[in-house]
Simulated scan of single mutants.
Amino acid sequence: MDALTHASHELIDKSVDYITLPEELYDIERRFNELKSESIKNERLARENEQKKDELIVYLAHDIKTPLTSMIGYLSLLDEIKDMPDIQREKYINVALDKSYSLEDLINELFEVARYNSEKIILEKEDLDIRLMLEQIIDDFYPVLVEQEKNIHLNQDEDITLYGDADKLSRVFSNVIKNAISYSKDHTDINIDVHSMHDDAIIEVINKGKEIPKEKLNRIFENFYRLDSARTSRTGGSGLGLAIAKEIVELHHGSIFASSNKEETVFTTTLPKN
């Protein structure tokens, strides 16, 4: 008992690398060291995530200045030059509007990062129609699709009802579809195929874009992992969207994974219907 009491204190003692118990307590010793190793690993990951979070907030704060400065510049010109030609005025208004959308994206990212780890995901389940949910999400992306001259085709031959959290699952597919739009080639279509398999619903979001290397496919669902290192409004997200999507899907006892080749990239989500 004394040995176990001492070992329990060593579990949280950072100066102790390995816990040793009498030979007859070998199984307990092994389990204690597994717990200690897991604790050290989790602590290291938490520190790394926190560091990435802090760095991302700094980047976002810096990036916000760029569209804001541009907006102020163009709006000031519109205010100062009262007799500006209509064509030039329309151009300046369009530029200022485009910069305001970029600013909105960056601010939303900043809120998402700041909110990370401060909210616990609690599901409020209800019966929901997959087709209706996806159609509403697609409608939300209409302005972006028009701008990039892309289309989304929803292919679903049967009515499928899920028992899940409508708001949270909408967040999942908004993130996945946004990702598909961002990384698809110009003037290409995005397909969403929905079908049943036994007691599950399968939702595949397919886009034609650059192949994602296998080593990156294994990491895209990690917190703060960004496929592109360059920060752009189209592809430079916070790196939380897919990580949150995976967490929500797994809370529904489902799964999500990605596959990619030279022709297309597919995000496959499997969710139990009941």
Score class of each variant (00 low, 15 high):
S102F: 07
L35E: 06
D86Q: 11
D79G: 04
D139T: 11
V146E: 11
K150T: 03
H6W: 03
Q136S: 12
Y26L: 14
R44N: 12
T66W: 03
F32S: 04
S118V: 10
I93K: 11
K99T: 02
K82I: 08
D17G: 13
I40T: 01
N151M: 12
P85Q: 09
Y59K: 14
Y18A: 01
K65C: 06
N33Y: 09
S8N: 08
L110I: 02
E34M: 11
K99W: 02
K52P: 00
L97E: 09
K65V: 07
H6F: 06
E50P: 00
P67H: 07
Y116L: 10
E90V: 05
E135R: 03
S76A: 08
P67W: 07
G73I: 01
Y59H: 11
P85S: 05
E135C: 01
I87K: 11
L110G: 01
T20W: 02
E147F: 05
E48H: 05
F32R: 03
F111V: 15
A46D: 12
D54F: 05
L132Q: 13
E124W: 00
E104S: 15
Y101E: 13
F111Y: 15
E126G: 01
I40F: 10
E149N: 15
A7G: 02
P67L: 02
Y18R: 12
I28C: 03
E109M: 15
L75S: 05
E55R: 14
N108R: 15
E43F: 04
G73P: 00
K65R: 14
L4Y: 10
